[in-house]
Design a protein around this nucleic acid. Sequence first.
DNA 1: CGCCTAATTGATTCTTATCAATATTCGTGG
DNA 2: CCACGAATATTGATAAGAATCAATTAGGCG
Lengths: 232, 232
Amino acid sequence: MGSCDTCLVRNRAICSALDGEEVQLLNAIGRRKALAAGDPLIWEGDDSLLVANVIEGMLKLTNSTEDGREQIVGVVYPSDFIGRPFGARANHSVTALTDARVCIFARSDFDRFAADHPALEHKLLERTLTELDRTRSWMLLLARKSAEEKVATFLLDMSARLVDSTCTTPHHGPLDEFELPFSRQQIGDILGVTIETVSRQMTRLKRDGVLDLPTRRSVRILDRLALEAMAG
Amino acid sequence: MGSCDTCLVRNRAICSALDGEEVQLLNAIGRRKALAAGDPLIWEGDDSLLVANVIEGMLKLTNSTEDGREQIVGVVYPSDFIGRPFGARANHSVTALTDARVCIFARSDFDRFAADHPALEHKLLERTLTELDRTRSWMLLLARKSAEEKVATFLLDMSARLVDSTCTTPHHGPLDEFELPFSRQQIGDILGVTIETVSRQMTRLKRDGVLDLPTRRSVRILDRLALEAMAG
DNA sequence: CGCCTAATTGATTCTTATCAATATTCGTGG
DNA sequence: CCACGAATATTGATAAGAATCAATTAGGCG
């Protein structure tokens, strides 16, 4: 209980770079932590004191202006890495979107351990490069796309991303039916638009027969080609 | 000529992680390349065939929509690293903004070399983490800030960033007078607004006595506090 | 069943894009 | 050195898109 042996993400997280003995060592410096939806883990601007791996659940990374406008700058899923190693400052807040479990390390402990384990750093580098690419691609959406394009892109992105978590179906490729893990407000915070704009775009997609929205949180894509055309 | 010994960025680029002998080896697999302003180096979507270090000049990283809208997702300066190691695909285009010199490596050569030199990978990891933080912070600006806030933030950012390159003045801290390395169009592409909007905001800042704009490319900050207040 | 929150819908305003017309700067060649 | 042309920037008028403000409406949960 609570050891790496039984860890759900043992084979996908950066720990997969380590052999049995090394995992023991890492296990010794980390500990599990449970978060309820809404719980904060890291505050923007604070000293960077901890890093973590997501075991279960989803968390958001946010930046805010002084007057309270918030932007979700990233969402992390199981096996993803959280925090800022090798740096003094946390540049964004991290908050649980759902109930979640994470495996946390004091940053100084982790930094030391990483320095001794190049394979771990290599995994972390690959992940960070991928995340940087993903983030940069998202900038195009935030800066240049219309609300319609944003919502269409978001839905396609979710449809592709949520595949991993549904191991029930043997079929691969993007899902045409899924549950949104976000509220309308959170979708707005991700896309950089207001909740009303998200709502209007969703309604319009439904009216035009591109989607069906059986419940608030569920989406069924009826016309994927149309949705892709709208995504710009 | 063209060797690492005489390299301008030898002590700042990721190569600084290497000792003399290792630098020799790296030198053997890299070569210099000169770019004129406007020259492309990497195309978005192409196979990732090369990575590089910037020796001199500035380059832009861009993503584009199919219908031609372009967003600058990053700007790289001397000593910065370019390209996507350990990945098959280049996710953004890289184009010289000024005449530039870079030190390029075949990606496969670089990947192999990096795998054997953990200290190099560590430097690259630190850089990538910093760049990811910077990029995420920029998302808040793109998604949530008004045109006025964007331009004010941009000018303050330039004022802080351009310090390094002017070694003439012994004083430290942000510059109150500097030359913009970007055209209005490029500023628009960075901020996610049109050239007209950039122009109008600049004119307004000048009219309000916050700035002086002696030439198109030069800026003198007259009231830094006001500018900071506007940056949001 | 009723309450509280989340979401939708409508009316209006504000911001910024777009379209269009100068104006300025810079480089080049006479 | 000046004149010309091309590229760059500014300025103005208008329109489109999304935010804001304001009611409702629907869902979820005790």
